[in-house]
Computed example of a mutant assay.
Amino acid sequence: MRKWHRWVSVFFGVFMLWIAVTGVLSQVAVLWPAGAPDPAAQAAATPPAGFECPDGWRCQPPRANATGIRSMVGTFHHLHSGETFGTIGTIISVLSGLALVFFSISGIWLYVQMWRFRSDRKLAPRWFWK
């Protein structure tokens, strides 16, 4: 298991770093504070005359056009999902997600194996060791 864990990490480590960085940038862009509201954008965001929100729905006015880093949310999403690089990028993104699942399971498996090895050798039980 250790051999597979090591070899898969050599290939997918770069892609997982890419996915992590673009995912963080995507969330930072969403959470980035918006600038001062534009009065023209607020006027355009009002619903048309005669519009009524259907029962049980929570209607919101359309969002004004984003500016600054918020305007890049879509770009970060396409980079994060691999869509920018076509079908191959999407496939690599999905495989990287599956690799992350593999690393999680194999990492826990390796930890349990090391824990059992220490226990069998009658060494002091610890959560972490050198």
Rank of each mutant, 00 (worst) to 15 (best):
P61E: 12
A99W: 01
F103W: 03
W127A: 09
W7A: 08
V94K: 06
G97M: 09
F117L: 15
M1F: 11
L98N: 05
S9P: 03
F11L: 04
L31I: 10
I69V: 08
I105R: 07
R116P: 04
R121H: 12
R6E: 14
V112E: 10
M1N: 12
F11A: 06
W115H: 12
L100R: 00
R63A: 15
F11C: 01
W4M: 05
S81H: 07
F12L: 01
A64V: 01
S9I: 05
W7E: 15
L110S: 13
G97C: 10
I105A: 13
D38E: 08
P47T: 11
L31S: 15
P54F: 13
W129H: 12
A40H: 06
W57N: 14
Q60M: 13
G97S: 12
H5N: 02
H80F: 13
S119K: 13
P61I: 11
P47G: 12
V101Y: 05
S81K: 03
R63M: 13
G56H: 00
V73N: 08
E83P: 03
D55I: 13
T87R: 11
R2N: 14
V14P: 02
G82R: 01
V24P: 07
F102N: 00
V24S: 11
L98A: 12
C53S: 15
I69H: 03
S106R: 04
T90V: 10
W7K: 02
I69M: 01
F103C: 05
L25W: 02
G50N: 13
G74K: 00
V14R: 04
I88H: 09
G82M: 00
R6V: 10
F103I: 06
E52C: 12
V10L: 09
S106G: 09
A43F: 04
W4A: 13
N65A: 15
L110F: 11
L98V: 07
L25A: 12
H80G: 14
F102L: 05
Q42K: 03
A66G: 06
D38V: 05
G35T: 07
A34T: 06
W7N: 11
W18H: 08
F103S: 07
V8A: 11
S96I: 03
A36F: 08
G68Y: 00
F117P: 01
S26Y: 09
